[in-house]
Write a protein that binds this DNA or RNA. Structure first.
Length: 345
DNA sequence: ATCGGGGCTTC
DNA sequence: CTCGGAG
DNA sequence: CTCCGAGGAAGCCCCGAT
Protein backbone atom coordinates (compact mmCIF):
# COMPACT_ATOMS: atom_id res chain seq x y z
CA UNK A 1 0.00 0.00 0.00
CA UNK A 2 3.02 2.22 -0.41
CA UNK A 3 1.31 4.39 -2.99
CA UNK A 4 -1.37 5.22 -0.45
CA UNK A 5 0.43 5.19 2.88
CA UNK A 6 3.61 6.91 1.83
CA UNK A 7 1.98 10.16 0.64
CA UNK A 8 -0.25 10.10 3.72
CA UNK A 9 2.75 9.79 6.04
CA UNK A 10 4.60 12.49 4.17
CA UNK A 11 1.61 14.83 4.46
CA UNK A 12 1.28 14.12 8.16
CA UNK A 13 4.94 14.77 8.89
CA UNK A 14 5.14 17.97 6.91
CA UNK A 15 1.88 19.38 8.22
CA UNK A 16 2.81 18.49 11.78
CA UNK A 17 6.21 20.10 11.58
CA UNK A 18 4.77 23.13 9.85
CA UNK A 19 7.76 23.00 7.56
CA UNK A 20 6.00 25.20 5.06
CA UNK A 21 4.41 28.53 5.68
CA UNK A 22 0.93 27.19 5.10
CA UNK A 23 -0.78 30.14 6.68
CA UNK A 24 0.52 32.19 3.79
CA UNK A 25 -1.01 29.88 1.20
CA UNK A 26 -4.52 29.56 -0.11
CA UNK A 27 -6.32 26.23 0.22
CA UNK A 28 -5.52 25.55 -3.42
CA UNK A 29 -1.89 26.36 -2.70
CA UNK A 30 -1.73 23.88 0.15
CA UNK A 31 -3.41 21.22 -1.96
CA UNK A 32 -0.92 21.71 -4.73
CA UNK A 33 2.02 21.58 -2.28
CA UNK A 34 0.74 18.32 -0.87
CA UNK A 35 0.18 17.00 -4.37
CA UNK A 36 3.78 17.60 -5.32
CA UNK A 37 4.86 16.08 -2.01
CA UNK A 38 2.95 12.92 -2.99
CA UNK A 39 4.75 12.84 -6.30
CA UNK A 40 8.10 13.26 -4.59
CA UNK A 41 7.68 10.38 -2.15
CA UNK A 42 6.29 8.19 -4.91
CA UNK A 43 9.33 8.96 -7.06
CA UNK A 44 11.60 8.23 -4.12
CA UNK A 45 9.87 4.92 -3.50
CA UNK A 46 10.34 3.96 -7.14
CA UNK A 47 14.09 4.26 -6.69
CA UNK A 48 14.56 3.10 -3.09
CA UNK A 49 11.54 1.03 -2.06
CA UNK A 50 13.37 0.25 1.13
CA UNK A 51 12.37 2.71 3.84
CA UNK A 52 15.13 1.74 6.22
CA UNK A 53 18.36 3.64 6.41
CA UNK A 54 19.28 7.12 5.29
CA UNK A 55 19.25 6.46 1.52
CA UNK A 56 15.53 7.04 1.14
CA UNK A 57 15.78 10.47 2.70
CA UNK A 58 18.84 11.62 0.80
CA UNK A 59 18.23 14.65 -1.32
CA UNK A 60 19.81 13.18 -4.45
CA UNK A 61 18.03 9.92 -5.08
CA UNK A 62 19.85 7.21 -6.92
CA UNK A 63 19.13 3.56 -7.43
CA UNK A 64 21.39 1.22 -5.55
CA UNK A 65 22.25 -2.08 -7.25
CA UNK A 66 21.31 -4.78 -4.78
CA UNK A 67 18.09 -2.99 -3.85
CA UNK A 68 15.31 -3.98 -6.29
CA UNK A 69 13.13 -1.27 -7.77
CA UNK A 70 9.38 -1.63 -8.45
CA UNK A 71 8.96 -3.09 -11.92
CA UNK A 72 7.26 -1.19 -14.71
CA UNK A 73 4.04 -3.08 -15.36
CA UNK A 74 2.01 -3.54 -18.49
CA UNK A 75 -1.43 -2.01 -18.90
CA UNK A 76 -4.22 -3.78 -20.68
CA UNK A 77 -6.14 -2.05 -23.44
CA UNK A 78 -9.38 -2.99 -25.15
CA UNK A 79 -7.52 -3.81 -28.30
CA UNK A 80 -5.47 -2.49 -31.15
CA UNK A 81 -7.75 0.45 -31.83
CA UNK A 82 -7.38 1.74 -28.28
CA UNK A 83 -3.60 1.35 -28.36
CA UNK A 84 -3.54 3.15 -31.65
CA UNK A 85 -5.46 6.04 -30.17
CA UNK A 86 -2.92 6.38 -27.35
CA UNK A 87 -0.09 6.83 -29.84
CA UNK A 88 -2.12 9.23 -31.91
CA UNK A 89 -0.58 8.45 -35.26
CA UNK A 90 3.03 8.29 -34.12
CA UNK A 91 5.21 5.28 -34.77
CA UNK A 92 5.74 3.13 -31.70
CA UNK A 93 7.63 0.04 -30.63
CA UNK A 94 6.01 -3.34 -30.16
CA UNK A 95 7.69 -6.00 -28.14
CA UNK A 96 7.17 -9.73 -28.01
CA UNK A 97 5.52 -10.79 -24.77
CA UNK A 98 7.55 -13.74 -23.60
CA UNK A 99 5.69 -16.23 -21.41
CA UNK A 100 8.10 -16.78 -18.57
CA UNK A 101 9.09 -15.06 -15.39
CA UNK A 102 10.12 -11.47 -14.86
CA UNK A 103 13.70 -10.97 -13.70
CA UNK A 104 15.38 -7.82 -12.52
CA UNK A 105 19.10 -8.48 -12.82
CA UNK A 106 21.52 -6.48 -10.71
CA UNK A 107 25.25 -6.37 -10.92
CA UNK A 108 26.74 -4.84 -7.78
CA UNK A 109 29.96 -2.89 -7.58
CA UNK A 110 31.55 -5.80 -5.68
CA UNK A 111 31.10 -7.90 -8.84
CA UNK A 112 28.29 -10.07 -7.53
CA UNK A 113 25.09 -10.65 -9.52
CA UNK A 114 21.65 -10.84 -7.92
CA UNK A 115 18.22 -11.60 -9.41
CA UNK A 116 14.87 -10.23 -8.22
CA UNK A 117 11.33 -11.27 -9.12
CA UNK A 118 8.40 -9.12 -10.15
CA UNK A 119 7.44 -8.96 -6.47
CA UNK A 120 10.97 -7.74 -5.69
CA UNK A 121 11.84 -10.97 -3.92
CA UNK A 122 15.34 -12.26 -4.37
CA UNK A 123 15.54 -15.35 -6.61
CA UNK A 124 19.28 -15.53 -7.17
CA UNK A 125 19.51 -19.07 -5.81
CA UNK A 126 17.03 -20.27 -8.44
CA UNK A 127 19.14 -19.05 -11.34
CA UNK A 128 22.84 -19.84 -10.88
CA UNK A 129 23.07 -20.45 -14.64
CA UNK A 130 21.70 -16.98 -15.31
CA UNK A 131 24.25 -15.48 -12.94
CA UNK A 132 27.03 -17.22 -14.88
CA UNK A 133 25.66 -16.03 -18.23
CA UNK A 134 25.68 -12.45 -17.01
CA UNK A 135 29.22 -12.66 -15.73
CA UNK A 136 30.33 -14.21 -19.00
CA UNK A 137 28.53 -11.89 -21.42
CA UNK A 138 28.80 -8.51 -19.72
CA UNK A 139 31.53 -6.16 -20.94
CA UNK A 140 34.37 -5.77 -18.44
CA UNK A 141 33.99 -1.97 -18.35
CA UNK A 142 30.53 -2.30 -16.78
CA UNK A 143 30.91 -2.07 -13.02
CA UNK A 144 27.23 -2.06 -12.06
CA UNK A 145 23.80 -2.19 -13.69
CA UNK A 146 20.12 -3.00 -13.30
CA UNK A 147 18.48 -4.91 -16.17
CA UNK A 148 14.85 -5.82 -16.82
CA UNK A 149 14.29 -9.17 -18.48
CA UNK A 150 12.00 -12.15 -18.96
CA UNK A 151 13.40 -15.60 -18.21
CA UNK A 152 11.94 -18.31 -20.45
CA UNK A 153 12.41 -22.06 -20.45
CA UNK A 154 14.22 -23.26 -23.55
CA UNK A 155 14.86 -26.67 -25.13
CA UNK A 156 18.33 -26.51 -26.65
CA UNK A 157 18.00 -30.02 -28.10
CA UNK A 158 14.93 -28.96 -30.07
CA UNK A 159 16.53 -26.04 -31.86
CA UNK A 160 16.11 -23.56 -29.00
CA UNK A 161 12.38 -24.06 -28.81
CA UNK A 162 10.84 -21.90 -26.11
CA UNK A 163 8.94 -23.78 -23.41
CA UNK A 164 5.68 -23.00 -21.67
CA UNK A 165 5.43 -21.15 -18.40
CA UNK A 166 4.40 -24.39 -16.65
CA UNK A 167 7.58 -26.10 -17.74
CA UNK A 168 9.67 -23.21 -16.49
CA UNK A 169 7.89 -23.28 -13.16
CA UNK A 170 8.77 -26.95 -12.72
CA UNK A 171 12.35 -25.85 -12.30
CA UNK A 172 13.81 -26.19 -8.82
CA UNK A 173 13.47 -23.16 -6.53
CA UNK A 174 16.35 -23.25 -4.11
CA UNK A 175 16.00 -21.22 -0.94
CA UNK A 176 17.53 -18.30 0.84
CA UNK A 177 20.53 -20.29 2.05
CA UNK A 178 21.38 -22.59 -0.82
CA UNK A 179 21.40 -22.32 -4.57
CA UNK A 180 20.10 -25.10 -6.81
CA UNK A 181 22.83 -27.33 -8.24
CA UNK A 182 23.88 -26.13 -11.65
CA UNK A 183 24.92 -29.63 -12.77
CA UNK A 184 21.46 -31.20 -12.63
CA UNK A 185 19.31 -28.37 -13.86
CA UNK A 186 16.45 -29.96 -15.82
CA UNK A 187 14.97 -26.88 -17.44
CA UNK A 188 17.40 -24.61 -19.27
CA UNK A 189 16.61 -20.95 -19.60
CA UNK A 190 17.07 -18.13 -22.07
CA UNK A 191 17.06 -14.54 -20.84
CA UNK A 192 15.32 -11.94 -22.99
CA UNK A 193 16.48 -8.50 -21.90
CA UNK A 194 14.17 -5.62 -22.71
CA UNK A 195 15.41 -2.72 -20.61
CA UNK A 196 18.29 -1.27 -18.67
CA UNK A 197 17.42 1.16 -15.89
CA UNK A 198 20.81 1.85 -14.38
CA UNK A 199 24.41 1.51 -15.44
CA UNK A 200 27.74 2.53 -13.90
CA UNK A 201 26.21 4.90 -11.39
CA UNK A 202 23.87 6.48 -13.90
CA UNK A 203 20.08 6.45 -13.88
CA UNK A 204 18.88 5.69 -17.41
CA UNK A 205 15.11 5.84 -17.01
CA UNK A 206 14.91 9.35 -18.40
CA UNK A 207 16.61 8.62 -21.69
CA UNK A 208 14.59 7.25 -24.62
CA UNK A 209 13.94 3.53 -24.98
CA UNK A 210 15.85 3.58 -28.25
CA UNK A 211 18.94 4.72 -26.39
CA UNK A 212 18.50 2.25 -23.56
CA UNK A 213 18.24 -0.53 -26.14
CA UNK A 214 21.52 0.64 -27.60
CA UNK A 215 23.16 0.54 -24.16
CA UNK A 216 22.12 -3.08 -23.76
CA UNK A 217 23.38 -3.85 -27.23
CA UNK A 218 26.73 -2.18 -26.60
CA UNK A 219 27.34 -3.45 -23.08
CA UNK A 220 26.38 -7.09 -23.50
CA UNK A 221 27.30 -9.80 -25.90
CA UNK A 222 24.24 -11.58 -27.20
CA UNK A 223 24.29 -15.35 -27.19
CA UNK A 224 21.38 -17.00 -28.99
CA UNK A 225 19.48 -19.39 -26.75
CA UNK A 226 21.11 -17.97 -23.65
CA UNK A 227 21.06 -14.20 -23.55
CA UNK A 228 19.13 -12.24 -26.15
CA UNK A 229 17.62 -8.81 -26.59
CA UNK A 230 13.84 -9.05 -26.60
CA UNK A 231 12.46 -9.15 -30.11
CA UNK A 232 10.87 -5.86 -31.05
CA UNK A 233 9.47 -3.99 -33.99
CA UNK A 234 8.84 -0.31 -34.48
CA UNK A 235 5.54 0.00 -36.23
CA UNK A 236 4.11 2.66 -38.46
CA UNK A 237 0.38 3.24 -38.73
CA UNK A 238 0.37 1.89 -42.28
CA UNK A 239 1.79 -1.39 -41.04
CA UNK A 240 -0.74 -1.58 -38.22
CA UNK A 241 -3.69 -1.19 -40.53
CA UNK A 242 -2.16 -4.00 -42.60
CA UNK A 243 -1.79 -6.08 -39.22
CA UNK A 244 -5.76 -5.49 -38.69
CA UNK A 245 -6.58 -6.32 -42.32
CA UNK A 246 -4.84 -9.69 -42.31
CA UNK A 247 -6.86 -11.45 -39.67
CA UNK A 248 -9.83 -13.75 -39.35
CA UNK A 249 -10.82 -15.51 -42.54
CA UNK A 250 -7.96 -13.97 -44.44
CA UNK A 251 -5.64 -16.32 -42.58
CA UNK A 252 -5.48 -19.71 -44.28
CA UNK A 253 -5.07 -23.00 -42.42
CA UNK A 254 -2.29 -24.17 -44.77
CA UNK A 255 -0.37 -23.27 -47.89
CA UNK A 256 -2.57 -23.32 -51.00
CA UNK A 257 -1.16 -25.79 -53.56
CA UNK A 258 -0.80 -23.11 -56.21
CA UNK A 259 1.54 -20.97 -54.06
CA UNK A 260 4.93 -21.82 -55.53
CA UNK A 261 7.53 -21.33 -52.80
CA UNK A 262 9.63 -23.31 -50.37
CA UNK A 263 9.35 -20.58 -47.75
CA UNK A 264 7.78 -21.71 -44.48
CA UNK A 265 6.22 -18.63 -42.90
CA UNK A 266 4.13 -18.83 -39.74
CA UNK A 267 0.97 -17.71 -41.54
CA UNK A 268 -0.51 -17.96 -45.00
CA UNK A 269 -2.89 -15.37 -46.38
CA UNK A 270 -5.30 -15.21 -49.26
CA UNK A 271 -3.87 -13.30 -52.22
CA UNK A 272 -6.00 -10.20 -52.37
CA UNK A 273 -3.88 -7.12 -51.93
CA UNK A 274 -1.19 -5.76 -54.22
CA UNK A 275 1.77 -4.09 -52.56
CA UNK A 276 4.33 -1.85 -54.11
CA UNK A 277 7.80 -2.89 -52.99
CA UNK A 278 10.93 -0.85 -53.42
CA UNK A 279 14.34 -2.50 -53.42
CA UNK A 280 18.00 -1.80 -54.13
CA UNK A 281 18.34 -4.44 -56.82
CA UNK A 282 16.95 -7.62 -58.23
CA UNK A 283 19.24 -10.56 -57.57
CA UNK A 284 19.32 -14.23 -58.48
CA UNK A 285 18.35 -16.23 -55.45
CA UNK A 286 18.86 -19.84 -54.42
CA UNK A 287 15.85 -19.51 -52.13
CA UNK A 288 13.16 -17.44 -53.80
CA UNK A 289 11.27 -18.71 -56.81
CA UNK A 290 9.97 -15.63 -58.61
CA UNK A 291 10.42 -16.04 -62.38
CA UNK A 292 12.23 -19.32 -61.82
CA UNK A 293 13.41 -20.85 -65.09
CA UNK A 294 13.22 -17.61 -67.02
CA UNK A 295 16.70 -16.24 -66.36
CA UNK A 296 18.21 -19.27 -64.65
CA UNK A 297 17.10 -22.93 -64.71
CA UNK A 298 16.98 -23.47 -60.93
CA UNK A 299 17.08 -20.00 -59.44
CA UNK A 300 14.44 -17.37 -58.97
CA UNK A 301 14.74 -13.63 -58.55
CA UNK A 302 14.61 -11.81 -55.24
CA UNK A 303 14.53 -8.17 -54.23
CA UNK A 304 17.59 -6.97 -52.38
CA UNK A 305 16.72 -4.89 -49.28
CA UNK A 306 12.97 -4.87 -49.90
CA UNK A 307 10.82 -2.14 -48.39
CA UNK A 308 7.06 -1.85 -48.40
CA UNK A 309 6.06 1.41 -50.11
CA UNK A 310 2.26 1.33 -50.38
CA UNK A 311 -0.60 -0.92 -51.24
CA UNK A 312 -2.13 -0.51 -54.68
CA UNK A 313 -5.89 -0.72 -54.18
CA UNK A 314 -6.84 -0.33 -57.84
CA UNK A 315 -5.12 -3.57 -58.77
CA UNK A 316 -6.24 -7.02 -57.77
CA UNK A 317 -3.84 -9.87 -57.18
CA UNK A 318 -4.02 -11.07 -60.79
CA UNK A 319 -2.79 -7.64 -61.93
CA UNK A 320 0.49 -7.67 -60.02
CA UNK A 321 3.87 -8.10 -61.70
CA UNK A 322 4.11 -11.46 -63.44
CA UNK A 323 7.11 -13.78 -63.71
CA UNK A 324 7.77 -12.38 -67.17
CA UNK A 325 7.60 -8.80 -65.87
CA UNK A 326 10.11 -9.61 -63.15
CA UNK A 327 12.46 -11.35 -65.59
CA UNK A 328 12.23 -8.32 -67.89
CA UNK A 329 13.00 -5.96 -65.01
CA UNK A 330 15.91 -8.10 -63.97
CA UNK A 331 17.39 -8.09 -67.49
CA UNK A 332 16.83 -4.36 -67.81
CA UNK A 333 18.78 -3.38 -64.73
CA UNK A 334 22.38 -2.30 -65.15
CA UNK A 335 23.84 -4.15 -62.18
CA UNK A 336 23.42 -7.83 -62.91
CA UNK A 337 26.86 -9.35 -62.57
CA UNK A 338 25.53 -12.55 -61.00
CA UNK A 339 23.81 -13.46 -64.24
CA UNK A 340 26.92 -13.53 -66.35
CA UNK A 341 28.98 -15.39 -63.75
CA UNK A 342 26.40 -17.95 -62.70
CA UNK A 343 24.25 -18.22 -65.78
CA UNK A 344 26.33 -21.06 -67.17
CA UNK A 345 25.46 -23.53 -64.38
C1' DA B 1 11.81 -43.48 4.14
C1' DT B 2 7.64 -41.86 2.02
C1' DC B 3 3.44 -39.31 1.41
C1' DG B 4 0.30 -35.48 1.56
C1' DG B 5 -1.21 -31.12 2.76
C1' DG B 6 -0.34 -26.32 3.99
C1' DG B 7 2.65 -22.54 2.64
C1' DC B 8 4.61 -19.83 -0.65
C1' DT B 9 5.54 -18.00 -5.14
C1' DT B 10 4.81 -17.52 -9.96
C1' DC B 11 1.59 -16.05 -13.65
C1' DC C 1 -2.49 -13.72 -14.03
C1' DT C 2 -7.88 -11.41 -13.95
C1' DC C 3 -11.59 -9.06 -11.87
C1' DG C 4 -14.14 -5.52 -9.50
C1' DG C 5 -14.96 -2.12 -5.71
C1' DA C 6 -13.59 2.33 -3.53
C1' DG C 7 -12.44 6.84 -4.01
C1' DC D 1 -8.45 6.48 -13.88
C1' DT D 2 -5.56 4.54 -10.02
C1' DC D 3 -4.91 1.62 -6.26
C1' DC D 4 -5.58 -2.40 -3.89
C1' DG D 5 -7.33 -6.73 -2.39
C1' DA D 6 -9.68 -11.15 -3.63
C1' DG D 7 -9.28 -15.15 -5.96
C1' DG D 8 -7.49 -18.85 -9.31
C1' DA D 9 -4.17 -22.39 -11.48
C1' DA D 10 0.02 -24.67 -11.04
C1' DG D 11 4.33 -26.04 -9.19
C1' DC D 12 8.11 -26.57 -5.66
C1' DC D 13 9.30 -26.58 -0.69
C1' DC D 14 8.94 -28.10 3.89
C1' DC D 15 7.37 -30.45 7.77
C1' DG D 16 4.65 -33.56 10.32
C1' DA D 17 2.18 -38.00 10.21
C1' DT D 18 2.54 -42.59 9.07
Amino acid sequence: MMKTLLPALAHAIVLDKKCMAYHALSLEGIKSQLQSLSTEVADAYNVIPNLEGPAFFASSLAMIPGTPIPPMLARITNGLSESLKLFNGRAFTCEYKYDGQRAQIHKLTDGSVRIFSRQMKESTTRFPDLVNMIKELCSPEVSSFILDAEVVGIDRKKGNKLMSFQELSSRERGNKQSSIAIENIKVDICVFVFDIMFCNGQRLLDCPLRKRRKYIHDLFQEKPGYFELAQQLTVSVTMLKTKEFYSGERILPKKPVYYKTDEQPELWFTAQQVWEIRGADLTLSPVHHAAIGLVHPSRGISVRMPRYTRSVPDRNSEDCSTATDIATMFKAQTRKMEVSSEGQE
